[in-house]
């Protein structure tokens, strides 16, 4: 699903985001990405969502060579990658329903089908009763769940999450992780960046560790091959 081959990212001004990172994530895997802040976690996710382009090496996502993808094709790539952010990135002048519907509106889905899918996604994250509320009236955990509903509503094969539990207490963090596990069980590939070591050791999944822009560790889940 994701294949990094000797990928580097240098920013103008000389700062190095990633250097010579190579790894492979298969479809239906659930992988954590960890490391100190500044280690390159966000950079790595941005390269996958094509928010940034690599300066060296090859990035393949979902059978697509992102290094060669034209700018005009980027939107179509992003539709296949659900992205979840620490700061939720919701539109505060629209209702929860409209926020979740956005990816479907963007890809031009019909009215009825949109409504059906949005309600299914909101139901999944347990927020169906809040569909008409504006996001600001929701708690941090609820807003994050709206963000998750928006990321999964178009049923992308790959979900990326950047510090999804960064601002949440342990209880809520566990709930979010449970949701992710459920998506994984129905075949979605997940890559979750977090520095919450305690949380991810408990999850018992593969962990990629970044250190100063290089891949420092790749530990498989215990008990798996």
């Amino acid at each position: 699903m994701i294949h990094f081959d000797n990928v580097s990212k240098r920013y103008p001004g000389g700062h190095t985001g990633l250097s010579n990172v190579s790894f492979r994530i298969e479809a239906e895997e659930m992988v954590f990405l960890t490391g100190h802040s500044g280690a390159g976690k966000s950079t790595l996710l941005k390269l996958i969502g094509l928010l940034e382009r690599s300066s060296g090496g090859q990035v393949h996502v979902n059978g697509r060579n992102l290094t060669r993808l034209k700018n005009s094709k980027i939107p179509y790539h992003r539709r296949e990658v659900g992205m979840i952010f620490q700061d939720h990135r919701l539109l505060h002048d629209r209702t929860v329903f409209d926020n979740v519907a956005l990816p479907l509106v963007v890809s031009g889905l019909g009215h009825k089908e949109t409504g059906r899918r949005v309600r299914a996604a909101l139901d999944k994250v347990g927020l169906l009763h809040k569909e008409k509320e504006p996001p600001v009236t929701l708690s941090g955990g609820e807003q994050q769940r709206v963000g998750i509903a928006r990321a999964v509503v178009s049923k992308p094969p790959l979900l990326l999450a950047d510090e999804p539990t960064g601002n949440l207490d342990p209880e809520l963090s566990r709930e979010i992780m449970d949701l992710f596990s459920q998506f994984n069980q129905v075949g979605v590939t997940l890559l979750i960046a977090t520095h919450d070591i305690e949380l991810i050791t408990r999850m018992n999944k593969r962990i990629l560790t970044l250190k100063k822009g290089t891949l420092d560790g790749d530990t498989q889940a215990e008990g798996s091959a």
Partner: peptide, 16 residues
């Protein structure tokens, strides 16, 4: 601006 950024993140084309 924020709205445009978010819509682009979600896969909106420039035309949209």
């Amino acid at each position: 601006q924020a709205e445009i950024e978010i819509t682009k993140l979600i896969g909106a084309t420039n035309a949209f």
